[in-house]
Amino acid sequence: MITKVLNSIIGRDGFILSFAFVALIMVAAYYIAKLIKQEKMGSAFAIIAGLVVAYIAGKFTGGTKGIADIPIFSGFLILGGSALRDYTIVSTAYGVKMENLKKAGLAGIVSLIVGVSFSFIIGAIIAKLLGFTDPKEITTIAAGAVTFIVGPVTGDALGVSSEIIALSVAAGVVKSVLTMIITPLIAKKIKLDNPTTAMVYGGMIGTTSGVAGGLAATDIKLVPYGAMTATFYTGLGTLVCPSIGYLIINLIF
């Protein structure tokens, strides 16, 4: 009887249930972050928790869709699907103002172009060194080294397997987490104490959550400057990586 009721819910309401499960993951992640006095890392922890959950689910089910392979969690396919992901990402551009865009000026634009190119090239070299040969896979991993959004968007566009997309997400998450941890430690050394440098920093690193978290841990006043260029980093990455990036990788490898 209980299974029957549960089954009838799963079929119809899986999507709604997924909100509750994600909320639970977030609560746990932010609780842990608070416990170790790293509140700004809550979102990074939540993403790591998601990856851990997917890992455990993969061990149990032997499937390829992480937690979504367990029927009651099938709603994750929609909540974590590319449609909602892209829809919400687009909304983060709200609040970026044209004037500020112009004010960011040359330093910001140069840092964006150099930043995306640098991470992409490093990611591609490492993928190649570690034995990846398919240009589509190299491009996706390289895009993951840009951000954990650019990776899956690029991977979807090129049609690579879920493992490669997971690798690209993992690369982006490593970047995001490292940024949050290292920024306050390295701030003095790289003279990260003024708006211009903060904009350059956002443009070079680009992972919005990492930059926002890292700058908040360094000097809260620098956050909007870094976040502003960082917001464009993912946009530029999604524009350039699956197109020019892929064409270049395809030519070289």
Partner: peptide, 12 residues
């Protein structure tokens, strides 16, 4: 949260 859900359904 959407990114968390996305992470949870990857082939980790």
């Amino acid at each position: 949260p959407v990114v968390v859900a996305m992470a949870s359904k990857q082939n980790v």
